[in-house]
């Protein structure tokens, strides 16, 4: 009887979450995997959904990896985009939170609020701001500034002309700016929980801000850094919204701006012929890569130690 009532309690609390996970995550995942084994295109489900073509779509991707220069570029874009943006996000967040830690409370919260603006503004608005900033003509803020300062004679078409670092730097910059605020919030809150005496003690012993940061603050928030690192890695692999808009608006070159997640989106929902079967196969591969990478980072960075029971009070 007791066991039964426990089960009831358990299901009572778990059901809402389980329903959400099943409906919005597990079912789509199963559908995606299934679709990747069909030749479905242009959403013609009646004709294609019951046709089973085995691993043909996966073979196509293998073939593209080997011979298709556009798809190979997508992979290079993804690696470059994820790695650099990840570094920008984690170190940027760390830098801002450390910098604001050492200045007074009032100005530091203002500063942090400013850094939250990108996250608070709608994706389209935020992207539009930077669209005009990086625009490849005199109307672009950056170009007009450089022209006025006399550094350049004619506008630079950064996103289309300077290949490949032009489009790369734009997408890294724009996604990095949004991502920084996440690390900043997590790190700032972690830093504020470090007993003030530790910093005072170090200061009395003659430590500079730099050595206090390096030897005390950063080691003490290393779990938070690991958490932000893992979280940002996984979300960068799957994020494409800003990049999609900038490519659609013609600011960023399509070939050098498209990452794997955007490729999946464009293949399934883009203009022209839509190839959902191929997109599903790529999405499945993306999901596997994400799972493996997430698992690896947690393993390498010893996540289990973080969730282990504490060994005495610190």
């Amino acid at each position: 009887m007791k066991k039964y009532s426990n089960l009831f309690q358990l299901s009572f609390f778990l059901t809402p979450a389980l329903v959400i996970i099943i409906v919005f995550y597990l079912l789509p995942l199963v559908l995606t995997v299934y679709m990747s084994f069909t030749p479905i295109r242009n959403w013609n489900t009646e004709r294609y959904l019951s046709q089973f073509i085995g691993s043909y779509n996966y073979y196509r991707i293998y073939h593209m990896v080997k011979y298709d220069p556009i798809f190979r570029q997508v992979m290079i874009n993804t690696i470059i985009f994820v790695l650099i943006t990840l570094i920008v996000n984690v170190f940027g967040g760390l830098l801002i939170s450390l910098a604001t830690y050492f200045i007074n409370e009032k100005s530091s919260s203002t500063l942090r609020l400013v850094w939250l603006l990108p996250r608070m503004s709608p994706i389209a608005v935020y992207s539009l701001v930077w669209y005009y900033f990086f625009h490849g003509s005199e109307i672009g803020t950056l170009n007009s500034l450089l022209l006025k300062l006399g550094i350049i004679d004619k506008p630079i078409v950064l996103g289309q002309g300077v290949i490949p670092w032009g489009p790369w730097s734009i997408i890294v910059f724009i996604n990095g700016l949004v991502g920084v605020s996440f690390g900043m919030i997590v790190f700032s809150s972690a830093l504020s929980h470090i007993p003030r005496e530790l910093v005072i003690a170090a200061r009395v012993d003659g430590a500079t801000n730099w050595s206090i940061s390096r030897k005390i603050l950063i080691p003490m928030i290393r779990w938070h850094i690991l958490y932000v690192f893992t979280w940002q890695l996984l979300s960068l692999i799957t994020s494409y919204a800003h990049t999609f808009l900038l490519i659609e608006w013609g600011l960023v070159n399509r070939d050098y701006g498209t990452t794997l997640s955007l490729y999946v989106f464009l293949t399934a929902f883009g203009r022209g012929e839509q190839d959902q079967g191929l997109a599903a196969a790529a999405a499945t591969i993306l999901a596997i890569i994400g799972t493996v990478l997430g698992f690896l980072t947690l393993k390498i960075l010893k996540f289990e130690r973080m969730i282990a029971k504490p060994r005495g009070d610190i």
Binding site: E197, L198, A201, R203, V204, G206, A207, M220
Partner: peptide
């Protein structure tokens, strides 16, 4: 500044670096 005063300071919570 504190570091130029050549002082030793002991705190109530001892402020040992836990790591």
């Amino acid at each position: 500044p504190p570091k130029e005063r050549n002082i030793g300071l002991v705190f109530q919570n001892w402020a040992l670096y836990p790591h």
